[in-house]
Simulated scan of single mutants.
Amino acid sequence: MQNNVKNKSKISEVLGRLAGQQIFIPIAALLLLAIFNLIMDPSFYTVTLGHNNAGDPVLSGYLITILDYGSELAILAIGMTLVTAATGGQDISVGAAIAISGSVILRVLCGTDSRPDTLQAPIIVAFLISCVVAMLFGAFNGALVAYFKIQPMVATLILFTAGRSIAAWINNNELPIVSDKTFTYFGGFIPGIPIPTPFFIAAACMIVTALVLKFTNLRLYTQAVGINESSSRLNGLNPQFIKFLTFVILGLCVAVAGLIKVSRLSSINYSVIAKDIEMDAILAVALGGNALSGGKFNMTASILGAYVIQFLTTTLYKFNVQSDALSAYKAVVVILLVVLSAPIVREKCSALWKKIKGTHAKEVA
């Protein structure tokens, strides 16, 4: 009997440690979604090997869809996490910025002809130009926030409002189409590789981010500015530059996501492309257990949160939820996260957990 009580006590301690980890929230959400789909429809996990129109082998299934579309969201979550940590605010213009960067890529590739027979420039050149443009728009947002002291959501509202019009203006309100098949590889499949290319692009971004955070002081400086800007300044940091830099990095992430987006269709729809993706990126950061008020962050949890958000979106589509209603379901998730992250709720949960542990300790004694 006493051994059973001790075992329960050990399990309780392990669960308490896991619950105390920041990454526990996205893992718990992932498990809930996984169990729900397993109970409702086990075929959700079916993955089949087929062939695309070109005859190349490709994997298909809901899990592959999550890997595919969750990857571009994970890329955005990297930049959004840094912006949130440093500024205590969020960039709501990433969807419009993706439209701009994608429009720039198509403009460079197509030139003055919206439907050229051959590419007018190498794809890498078009991508690098879009990176510069996206980073400039990120710098614009960063300057408003860092140097003009405008609240991030208000500062990025400018580009949120005007971004898609700018994207349409870049291509003279035309819908350019790229006929080169190699361009579709970035948003589709590389011949001979059955896994979607966006997953490999996201993996490369994660590796680069991990190396930067490990071998530079970006993590330390970002967290220091987010926790206490005045204190970080007294310690020799430049808070304005750190905030500015995070927006520029987010701009680079936007350019990568823009490449994937326009590559999927080899064209662009200015009003629809990346619609509401800013909400998903912010929700990924929140689901990762990161405080939306800034400070410490866990990049791994944010990236996992991005895939969980895509898991949720795919699940809702699986059960025939209309696209117009998706935001309502995600809003419920936001409310739950905000409530659970509230200090008073955390204090009550902590007190309850201590009470449970105290009860177990008495039983053991």
Rank of each mutant, 00 (worst) to 15 (best):
Val5Ala: 11
Asn7Ser: 10
Leu15Val: 10
Ile23His: 06
Ala28Ser: 07
Ala34Cys: 11
Phe36Tyr: 14
Ile39Leu: 13
Met40Phe: 10
Pro42Ala: 01
Val47Ser: 05
Val47Thr: 12
Gly50Lys: 07
Ala54Val: 11
Pro57Ser: 07
Leu59Lys: 05
Ser60Asp: 11
Gly61Gln: 04
Gly61His: 04
Tyr69Asn: 15
Glu72Gln: 15
Ile75Leu: 01
Ile78Gly: 01
Met80Gly: 01
Val83Cys: 11
Thr84Lys: 02
Gly89Phe: 04
Gln90Trp: 12
Ser93His: 09
Ala96Glu: 01
Ile98Gly: 05
Cys110Pro: 00
Arg115Trp: 09
Arg115Ala: 14
Pro116Gly: 03
Asp117Tyr: 13
Asp117Met: 15
Thr118Asp: 14
Ala121Gln: 00
Ile124Gly: 08
Phe127Val: 07
Met135His: 03
Met135Gln: 07
Leu136Tyr: 06
Gly138Lys: 06
Tyr147Trp: 12
Pro152Cys: 04
Phe160Lys: 13
Ile170Tyr: 08
Leu175Ala: 15
Thr182Arg: 15
Phe199Leu: 15
Ile201Pro: 08
Ala204Trp: 08
Cys205Thr: 08
Met206Thr: 12
Ala210Met: 08
Ala210Lys: 09
Leu211Asp: 09
Arg219Met: 01
Leu220Arg: 14
Gln223Lys: 12
Ala224Val: 01
Arg233Pro: 00
Leu234His: 10
Pro239His: 01
Lys243Cys: 08
Phe244Pro: 01
Gly251Ala: 08
Gly251Trp: 05
Cys253Leu: 04
Tyr270Glu: 10
Ser271Thr: 15
Ala274Pro: 06
Ala274Cys: 03
Ile277Met: 13
Met279Val: 14
Asp280Met: 12
Leu287Asp: 03
Leu292Ala: 02
Gly295Pro: 00
Phe297Ile: 03
Ile303Cys: 05
Ala306Asn: 03
Ala325Glu: 07
Ser327Glu: 09
Ser327Gln: 12
Tyr329Ile: 05
Ile335Asp: 05
Val339Gly: 07
Pro343Thr: 09
Ile344Asp: 13
Ile344Asn: 14
Arg346Val: 14
Trp353Ala: 15
Lys354Cys: 12
Gly358Ser: 09
Gly358Glu: 04
Thr359Met: 13
Lys362Val: 11
Ala365Tyr: 13
